[in-house]
């Protein structure tokens, strides 16, 4: 899912001429990868590997951060104090996940501020799912169920990514993530099983709006994906878009039956031969439109993040100014002592 935009990134320019030494280092690097070894921050790595990881990890981080406001939209309107607390904890986790991921990216020689600048100026991408509006409380449950469900499916393989700081961040994230999906499904379950007709209608309506965008989270079809081969070799992307998407559909259809909702796809049905569910065609025009910046909320999402950042500038500057003052006072003290 976070590689969704990787496939649309401009092709990296590979250095045509390499020294013999570099070629040897790269060959040994590839051998280590083939061996299943982990690469750490200070290890030698090809520039292309580093750049690919910086882009993927930072876009993953941006997705977590941009994912906060759509859910934050409902915190002040959560229908019970328990749900309010659960939602706050979930959004907070997402902020935390963004933080772990920025930290992992920073081990590759970039700073968080540089990465944020790329996001705020539109140079970096984030998962397109967060460009959709959260229109009802049921959307919050559906996001937990479908969007976090899709995220989990994408994230588990990443715990085996060859780049260890990213893998470690993913282990930490996966540990926290299952709570996110469970709380969403639980919220929906209560509404479907014990709620009013109006509540049930809310849930079905939310499913109708979020189903197809969730499928799009896995990125374009394999036939249209570039860059995947190299990412696969480096253990950055271990399972194909289509395979993940199919896994997701199969798992989710069963969960939908238990909930008592239907997916908005008349072609969705079990195929005995394939032992999987067939499903209808995805509207890839919509996908490219949203990835390209023209989805329902793209501008608002980015504007909200830019505003938060800009409004916070005086705070960050003041904290540094104070720290500098304290450091100078301390230095004077030590000199005098």
């Amino acid at each position: 899912m976070y590689t969704q935009a990787m496939d649309t990134a401009p092709k990296e320019e590979r250095k045509a001429v390499r020294t013999a030494e570099e070629a040897q280092l790269e060959a040994r690097f590839e051998a280590r990868i083939d061996d299943g070894a982990f690469i750490e921050a200070k290890d030698w790595m090809p520039e292309h590997y580093r750049k690919t990881l910086v882009r993927q990890i930072s876009q993953h981080a941006h997705s977590e951060i941009v994912g906060m406001p759509p859910e934050g939209n409902w915190v002040t309107r959560a229908p019970t104090l328990k749900r309010k607390a659960i939602l706050l904890a979930k959004i907070q986790d997402e902020g935390g996940h963004g933080l772990y991921l920025y930290a992992a990216a920073e081990t590759l020689g970039v700073s968080r501020d540089q990465l944020l600048d790329a996001l705020h100026t539109g140079r970096a991408k984030y998962s397109s799912i967060f460009n959709y509006p959260t229109l009802t409380w049921a959307d919050i449950g559906v996001i937990g169920w479908l969007v976090d469900g899709a995220a989990i499916m994408n994230q588990v393989p990443l715990t085996r990514c060859s780049y260890a700081p990213y893998a470690r961040a993913m282990v930490r994230i996966c540990r926290e993530e299952s709570f996110h999906q469970r709380q969403g499904y639980d919220a929906l379950m209560v509404m479907m099983r014990d709620g009013t007709d109006a509540q049930r209608a809310l849930v079905q309506d939310a499913v109708n709006r979020w189903w197809w965008p969730s499928l799009m989270m896995f990125g374009p079809p394999d036939s249209e994906s570039t860059h995947s081969a190299q990412s696969a070799r480096w253990g950055i992307k271990r399972i194909s878009n289509d395979d993940l998407r199919q896994k997701f559909v199969d798992a989710t259809v069963e969960q939908a039956k238990v909930l008592g909702v239907t997916m908005p796809d008349p072609l969705l049905k079990w195929n005995d031969e394939r032992q999987r569910h067939d499903f209808g065609p995805i509207d890839w025009d919509e996908f490219w439109r949203v990835v390209g910046g023209h989805g329902p909320c793209n501008k608002e999402r980015l504007a909200a993040r830019v505003k938060a950042w800009d409004d916070g500038a005086w705070v960050r500057e003041a904290a540094m100014a104070h720290a500098d003052k304290q450091a100078r006072k301390q230095a004077v003290k030590e000199k005098a002592a």
């Binding site: 070894a37 982990f38 750490e40 989990i152 499916m153 994230q155 588990v156 715990t159 260890a164 893998a167 470690r168 282990v171 996966c174 540990r175 993530e177 299952s178 999906q181 469970r182 499904y185 798992a251 969960q255």
Partner: peptide, 17 residues
């Protein structure tokens, strides 16, 4: 260093709810 067990820890319960 890479054989350290914590580097291979798998997250629990991520494929089912």
């Amino acid at each position: 260093v890479y054989r350290h067990p914590t580097f291979y820890e798998l997250p629990e319960a991520v494929n089912h709810m």
